[in-house]
Design a protein around this nucleic acid. Structure first.
Lengths: 193, 193
DNA sequence: TAAAATTATTCACGATAATATATAAATCAA
DNA sequence: TTGATTTATATATTATCGTGAATAATTTTA
């Protein structure tokens, strides 16, 4: 399945998900409806300008990413899988950033609770660790729990253990995964795929 | 500054980062060298097939992602210099991978020297740490020294201390930098939202 | 400086994206 | 079914990508 097929499939899927008719999309992208139809069906090898116009009209963004980072990315977006979502790195960083913010906020609101300061300290240590794919689940869980803890201090203990779980997940990440994560973004002459 | 300009800029930047000549890239992508030149300089509105071939030859992948998943990019990357951040990520990943390979090779060649095993152990620990921009200098230095150590075992001590320096650089990275540790390889930004 | 490699430019030409306009076919609602 | 909307297809025309081959211009290297 070539890149063109995948792109056209994505365009169609997103357009329908947005509830747009071909005509509406065409107008928004500044091209005839017939062209949208051909692109979606007839495997048109469209030009970059057309692609970016359509992408813009659909609220999508075109990105070039190192191939090795793509597989891990698919797990991040989940529900609305469009093509090959590839901003995992951003997601991870956002996660870490959010975690730090949440931990700080909780520590501020519960300065007397030792769990809160433990959480803060743990999370700050986490920022030094490389994030692995297998830890993304623990990451999400920790974020969710910390988030709800802001409004419900009774969950402090639960939050602490979720952060500990995340720390352990990162600390004990499989060596293969780490090696893979640090693999050359574009290896010197790979005939893979 | 349109998407086409940015794509061409990125292609050129990544090609040079990989040490490829236009001819080498052209051959790998299955097109004449003159076309690469025109693409890099003359703002050609290239077709999707050409773009994906070039991307593949460069180890990159073209993807469409929801703009909502790109909140950090715009603020981080700014509007002008887009070529560099991608090379950063790539360089980082290559560096870690190369470091591991070098360390393993040195440990294999000098199995009796305790410095060699220390180097290997240290480097493997490094893979758990997030790579920061401010540590790239130490990273380069370590790679260079380890590289020359392969042929000149007398430099083992020097190599060990360079790896230690790198470890320290990573361990004491500014917290602010850590939150932005690995950025998206590259993002085509399209003006408005 | 001279030679070699890399990059930029030129030209003719085929292939095809893209346009504009129409209309047939399919889908859906009343 | 009927009518309305959406989608697919048709035709002619224009614009330009991409090829191929050659060469000029530039940069790198010895």
């Amino acid at each position: 399945m070539g890149a063109i097929d995948e792109i056209s499939r994505t365009i169609k899927a997103v357009r329908q998900a947005r509830g747009l008719s071909q005509r509406a999309l065409a107008e928004s992208a500044g091209m005839p409806q017939s062209h949208i139809s051909r692109i979606e069906n007839a495997g048109v090898d469209l030009r970059l300008s057309s692609l970016t116009e359509i992408a813009r009209a659909l609220g999508l963004e075109l990105t070039l990413v190192p191939r090795k980072t793509v597989p891990a990315v698919r797990s991040i977006v989940g529900s609305t899988h469009v093509g090959t979502p590839s901003l995992m790195v951003v997601a991870r960083n956002n996660d870490i950033g959010e975690l730090v913010k949440l931990a700080d906020e909780i520590a501020g609101q519960n300065s007397s609770a030792k769990e809160a300061t433990q959480i803060k300290s743990l999370v700050h240590d986490l920022t030094r660790l490389a994030i692995t794919e297998s830890s993304l689940g623990s990451m999400r869980r920790a974020i969710d729990i910390l988030d709800s803890t802001r409004a419900d201090p009774k969950r402090l203990k639960e939050a602490l253990s979720s952060v500990r779980a995340l720390r352990n997940a990162l600390a004990h990440a499989p060596a293969e995964e780490l090696r893979q994560a640090s693999r050359p973004a574009y290896s010197l002459e790979d005939g893979d795929d």
